[in-house]
Design a protein around this nucleic acid. Structure first.
Lengths: 112, 112
DNA sequence: GACTTATATAATTGACGACTTATCTATTCT
DNA sequence: AGAATAGATAAGTCGTCAATTATATAAGTC
């Protein structure tokens, strides 16, 4: 299976995923938006949808003569895992949150 | 500036970043590893390093006649931000943390 | 059953980007 | 200063992949 970033290294596919992030959409609706924004044809979009399906970023199910696409979240975890090792910023933030939580818990315990 | 994923949509660049994640490295050291793993030339690696520099994923400083490369973490935040919207797993966790923080803050205010 | 609508596939073309080799620049060593 | 080393840049080639147009499949409509 090709690496997640190989799939996401395309602006059209990223945009499609953004659309799907708001909820499932029929192929035709996606084509409408993408064709307008990127000035590409229906088959072009359809091919991107195929790539997203094949690579496990999206799923599709038949609904009459339409195909409904939805996000398949699994592969995003993969990206997240890869990116984590480079992020120093969230670490302290997370620490801060964890600290807050700990203090909050304590505070509430005192209150009760 | 080109999108983060356009830069990471290349296995060689991803590997270089992985190397840098373990700490700064001279160009030559990177070439040694990458040339072995991917069977490409020194200029090829150098060009990838340039892309990483220009795109803000890495920084370089001169050290004698060597160039020391290091990770520049900023752009990884961008990726992380993009990916977050597709991850359902951490969402609840974060919500939980945020809630805790909010409650903790309130609790402490009452205490004071 | 013919027609239209929704979407996918096939075949082909073209652009872009990742290589190559050759060369340039800068630094260290003798 | 000249040679050697480290690395970057230049110019050109080539493969890949994202488009295109044309066509196929499948589901609803008349």
């Amino acid at each position: 299976m090709s690496h997640a970033f190989d799939i996401l290294g395309d602006p059209v596919r990223r945009r499609i995923l953004e659309l799907l992030a708001d909820g499932q959409r029929a192929s035709g609706e996606i084509v409408e938006v993408i064709a307008a924004e990127f000035a590409i044809s229906q088959p072009a979009v359809s091919q991107h949808l195929r790539v997203l399906r094949d690579s496990g970023f999206a799923t599709s199910r038949a609904d009459g003569r339409r195909r409904l696409y939805a996000i398949a979240p699994e592969r995003f975890d993969e990206i997240d895992a890869w990116v984590q090792r480079f992020r120093r910023t969230w670490e302290p933030r997370f620490e801060a949150l964890a600290t807050e939580v700990a203090r909050g818990k304590k505070a509430r315990r005192v209150e009760e």
